[in-house]
Design a binder for these strands. Structure first.
Lengths: 336, 336
DNA sequence: TACCCTTGCTTCATCGATTGAGCAAGCCCC
DNA sequence: GGGGCTTGCTCAATCGATGAAGCAAGGGTA
């Protein structure tokens, strides 16, 4: 390596007095199958070590029509849940001897498609897609390229998908909140449980809303779905404004609040900043998401923690199974 | 693409009735230089589109001895600051037409080295390393491979590095906390300002401690450095225990607390959970790190926010400049 | 007519590793 | 001593894209 150039199997071959193919076999472990003698292999390895050789993975990948890269596309990392997903994804990729290539593609469908195509162009061995805006288009691109793919968080109707069990998670949280509250009565809207935040047209939110409806309905606590379910979007300030409007109508905080997502919850906490301890204590809070500071607030908070670890593990299992058709797996989240 | 195989420039060439090199030139934009006629190029592009062609980046990378990959190594993503770093890194890589390959390598030096070598084996065009445990070894590997590299968060003495200005950031936070507190007196340890958390042997913490010492010293508020500076590590439970011990000694919360890192702050908040409002109100809190929930706590908190965006931008600037020798740039953090 | 220049392509080597096919030497056995 | 087997390697094609060099046809010029 004094030459300043990376050494290749040809350099090693020359110095060891063998052919490049012998070097290749010695280095990648196929030497027994190729009947190289142990002494030759040791000589080669010795030279390789002294030359500080490292294989060119692009060349290998080109030859083998694979790359050893594991691709993941996700909107961003600011979200704790996505950060956890990517962390788990990378850990498992690593355990499989793959190199994780993680691309932040935002929420724009075209941008996500370009990211997936770019990963495909690198001949990634698999693709995991989180929070897809237009799942079918991405699935199509992967299918065309014969790349194993799986969706997480936001499912795809035409490909293997692994998501949190939003329905039962929401139902469970709802049940818990209702059991923590005084039994609501039809005539007293301030005593009801409200659902706040999220976008009803997205799968995750819609499932959570279904769970909320079903459970609240079963408990006789759903009096006016229109009023009780306020899917005002995911931005914190929208949630803040929505809650402010609600309090204005009710004359006080409602008895129970099911907040959909940690982002919305930030808005809620901001709003609560202006209220008295007593006013806050009269409300039971739940959030469908997790943040370590959630347990450290001045009021009790039930949180649903999505199991990024289990979701990613199951997603890899789907990839292993080679499934490419539609298949939706739901992973139960934890209630804290 | 009905064949089920990815099409190559050879396929396109055949269908367009030209040579593969003409296809290559047409597709990568060098056709004018190569004097292809516009009509031929258009025919080629038409065929390529209909074949749904996409270039094999491994082949291109092999030929050109580069990959179009931008590599980043970092310990993990659970930390908000690292998450932001990776986010900014990916955004800028993207803007440059590079594909970000982000590897979580943990804190283990050997593991980090393997990750860097792996990226090098993919012929990444640049490497950004955050939170390196053994910077010189990683720098060595990059230098040997002639790969542009830069360190962030944890600097390297032998390579370009960009870090937060921990010294002045800590000094500023210290000054602010002292101005928010009643002037401490030598005889009353409970009235002093304390520094909690971090590892004194790490560059970031040691700089922050220097900043704290200097500022507290200048303000005449450093009475017993040994007692006032408690770099008990980064884990939240260590900080919790340390604070508990301190309160035990003092008989109450100190008048001021400079918490080094958000993780430690979690421990602090946990401890505060057992105290009364009044006890907490008597203490002035600051944290060298940022979390959106920090502003939502029941007591005021000054936070120092590290500018991941500026750090990454400067790091890319160092890469562009082609510097490979030692060079340490400090980026001033924000005080909130 | 001979020469040069431009235009518009093609040919072929190349990047580095892999791998099926093949070859030479040595040994065994009848 | 000839056929067959094993051992231990080498040869050469291959993956797909690139680009330097070259070539043929046509136009212009002397």
């Amino acid at each position: 390596m004094k030459t300043g150039q990376k050494s290749t199997i040809h350099d090693i071959a020359r110095k060891a007095g063998v052919s490049p193919s012998a070097v290749s076999a010695a280095l990648n472990g196929s030497w027994e199958k190729r009947r190289l003698s142990r002494t030759t292999v040791e000589r080669i390895l010795e030279v390789a070590r002294s030359e500080n050789y490292s294989v060119n993975l692009q060349a290998r990948g080109l030859r083998q029509a694979r790359s050893g890269l594991a691709g993941m596309v996700l909107p961003d990392h600011e979200n704790r849940y996505f950060a956890e997903l990517s962390q788990c994804f990378a850990a498992e990729a690593h355990a499989r001897g793959l190199c994780p290539a993680i691309v932040h593609a935002g929420r724009d469908a075209a941008e996500q498609l370009r990211s997936v195509e770019s990963l495909i162009a690198y001949a990634v061995d698999l693709v995991m897609i989180a929070g897809a805006s237009d799942p079918p288009a991405l699935a199509q691109a992967c299918r065309d390229a014969h790349v194993a793919h799986v969706f997480v968080d936001h499912p795809c109707a035409e490909a293997p998908s692994v998501v949190s069990d939003n329905l039962s998670g929401a139902a469970e949280l709802t049940r818990r909140l209702l059991s923590d509250m005084a039994p609501p009565e039809a005539g007293d809207p301030a005593g009801w449980l409200y659902f706040l935040g999220g976008a009803a047209h997205l799968p995750a939110s819609s499932e959570r809303i279904r769970g909320f409806r079903a459970e609240a309905g079963a408990a006789g606590a759903l009096f006016d779905a229109e009023a009780q379910i306020r899917a005002c979007g995911y931005e914190s300030h929208r949630a803040e404004a929505e809650l402010a409007a609600l309090c204005d109508r009710l004359g006080r905080l409602p008895a129970g609040l099911f907040v959909n997502s940690i982002g919305c919850f930030e808005g809620v906490v901001r709003f609560l900043g202006g209220l008295s301890e007593d006013a806050i204590a009269a409300c039971t809070f739940g959030c469908f998401d997790y943040d370590p500071f959630g347990t450290l607030l001045r009021f009790p908070l039930r949180m649903v923690r999505q199991r990024a670890d289990l979701i990613v593990a199951e997603a890899y299992r789907q990839l292993d199974a080679g499934a490419s058709g539609p298949r939706l797996v739901r992973i139960a989240p934890d209630l804290l």
